[in-house]
Structures are given as structure tokens and as C-alpha cells.
């Protein structure tokens, strides 16, 4: 059924006054190629994607919060076991890894800037650096995991209490000046290492996913994507990468630095 002409006119007027993006859009009918059909303007699209990314990070916070809750409770229950467990971690590797990840966050932030300012070669460079630093982080993590594996500190059937019952037999425990733990406390180190592997493992899983996306982005960036005014994808990936960085900042403080004095 046809509308009254007056009604249609009013419709247009209201549309223009209520939504400047829409008005600008109807004034310039040609859309940028990346604008999806159901959005009215590129601004709306970028806003929606950015907000969606933040909501996704919100879910990530909640995903990790279960682990942090568990950590907090068991740390208070089994403080001595947690201290002894943390002495088995290498502060040197941990600090190096923190620095590596912060550096990769920096290169990622630079990549976003390059993307926004249309620097194509620099964008590829920054993304590649981020990728390499991320790989480096996982490599160091792998070295640390390997060490735990060799000392039977992976929870499960082959978990060994050697380092905690007889700290003199263990270089790391000796260096930290650990005294032998009673059997009860020593057994609770398994809870510490469960949480250690869970938290760093979840974090590493996020890193792996991030690296896969990053590799894809590098290929696209070399082909010239992301620098023609549409930086949303790089920007949102940057948010994800920085979020991983933040998680690690807390994991480092909580797992490595419980009590070193």
C-alpha cells in the first residue's frame, strides 16, 4: 500500500536529523568496498566491530576469572606449597618472557598506527615483528615446560614430590633456600602446578590462536590490505593481543613472584 507523500517526506527528514551517518551516506551513494550491505555507514560498521571485540574481551575476562578464583583460594589454603612451587619457576625466563610479550604488544600497537596512517611496508614489518616475538614467547614457554616435564612437575600420575621433600637434591630449591616441606604441604604443590599449567596453558592457547590470525594478517598486509582506510581488523586483533599481554602481566606476578625473599 502506498504511503502518504507527507509521511514519506517526514520520514526522510527525521532520518536526516536523527542519524548524521545516514544523511552523509545518502548524500554520497558510492560505498567503500569493505562496507557490508546491512550497515548504513562505514563509521557504524567500525563502531559495531570494535564494540563486538570489546564484548568478546569481556567474555575472555570471565573465562580467565574462573582460574583466578581457583588460584586465589588455593594460594590462601596452601601458601607454603605455592611458595615452594613458585621457586621451581625461573624468574629469569619469566622476566624475559614478560619483556618479550610487552615488546610484541608495542610492535602490535605500532602496526595499528601504521595501518591507520596507511604505511604499508611498515605495517608488514610491525606485524612480522609481533609474530616473531610471539613465537619467541612460546619458545621460551616451551623451554620452561620442558624443564617441568623433566623434573616430573607435570600433575598427574608421574608427579614427583622429590624437589619439595628433599630440596637439597634440587638446584632451584637449593638456590631459593627451601626447607623440606611436610608431606601434606608437599603434596599440595600439585595443586600449584595444576594451576600453573592451566593458566599458562590457556594463555599459550590464546597465543597460538593469535599467531595463526597474525600469520593470515601478514599475508593480507603484504598484498596491501588494511592500509586503505579500513583498519578495523588490525585494530581489533590488536585489542586481542594486548589483552593476552595483560593476562600475562598478572600471571607473571601471581605465579613467578609469590615470595622470592
Amino acid at each position: 500500500m502506498p504511503d502518504s507523500p507527507a509521511m514519506t517526506h517526514g520520514t526522510q527528514e527525521l532520518a536526516n536529523s536523527a542519524d548524521p551517518g545516514n544523511a552523509a551516506n545518502s548524500a554520497h551513494p558510492e560505498h567503500p568496498p569493505y562496507l557490508l550491505h546491512h550497515f548504513e555507514s562505514a563509521g557504524q560498521q567500525a563502531d559495531a566491530a570494535g564494540f563486538a571485540m570489546w564484548l568478546f574481551l569481556l567474555t575472555e575476562v570471565m573465562f580467565f576469572s574462573g582460574l583466578f578464583t581457583a588460584y586465589l583460594i588455593y594460594r590462601n589454603w596452601y601458601y607454603r606449597a605455592f611458595v615452594a612451587g613458585s621457586h621451581q619457576l625461573s624468574v629469569v625466563w619469566g622476566t624475559t618472557n614478560t619483556a618479550v610479550l610487552i615488546l610484541s604488544s608495542f610492535t602490535m600497537a605500532m602496526a595499528v598506527w601504521c595501518s591507520k596512517t596507511g604505511r604499508r611496508r611498515e605495517l608488514t614489518l610491525c606485524l612480522t615483528l609481533t609474530f616473531l616475538l610471539g613465537l619467541g614467547f612460546l619458545g621460551i614457554k616451551g623451554i620452561e615446560y620442558h624443564e617441568k616435564f623433566e623434573k616430573h612437575h607435570v600433575p598427574g600420575r608421574h608427579y614427583s614430590l622429590q624437589s619439595f621433600l628433599y630440596p637439597d637434591s634440587d638446584a632451584a630449591a637449593r638456590a631459593a633456600g627451601d626447607r623440606p616441606l611436610p608431606l601434606d604441604d608437599a603434596r599440595h604443590t600439585e595443586v600449584y602446578f595444576s594451576l600453573y599449567f592451566l593458566m599458562t596453558g590457556m594463555h599459550a592457547a590464546h597465543m597460538v590462536i593469535g599467531l595463526c590470525i597474525l600469520g593470515f594478517m601478514i599475508l593480507r598486509a603484504r598484498a596491501g590490505a588494511y592500509t586503505a582506510g579500513h583498519a578495523t581488523f588490525v585494530e581489533n586483533f590488536g585489542l586481542y593481543w594486548h589483552f593476552i599481554d595483560i593476562v600475562w602481566i598478572y600471571l607473571f606476578a601471581l605465579l613467578y613472584l609469590i615470595s622470592r625473599h
Partner: peptide
């Protein structure tokens, strides 16, 4: 929507933040 031109933070700020983060570590 569309809160004016997006504010772009430059590399200089990023470098400062990088060193602040490393110092914090």
C-alpha cells in the same frame, strides 16, 4: 556512533609506554 575523527596515538607515546612497562616489570 561516529564520535568525530578518531584520535590516533602516535609512536612517541607508544615508546614512552613501552619503557614504562619495562620499568614496571
Amino acid at each position: 556512533q561516529n564520535e568525530g575523527a578518531p584520535h590516533i596515538i602516535g609512536p612517541r607515546v607508544y615508546v614512552v609506554i613501552l619503557f614504562a612497562l619495562l620499568a614496571g616489570t
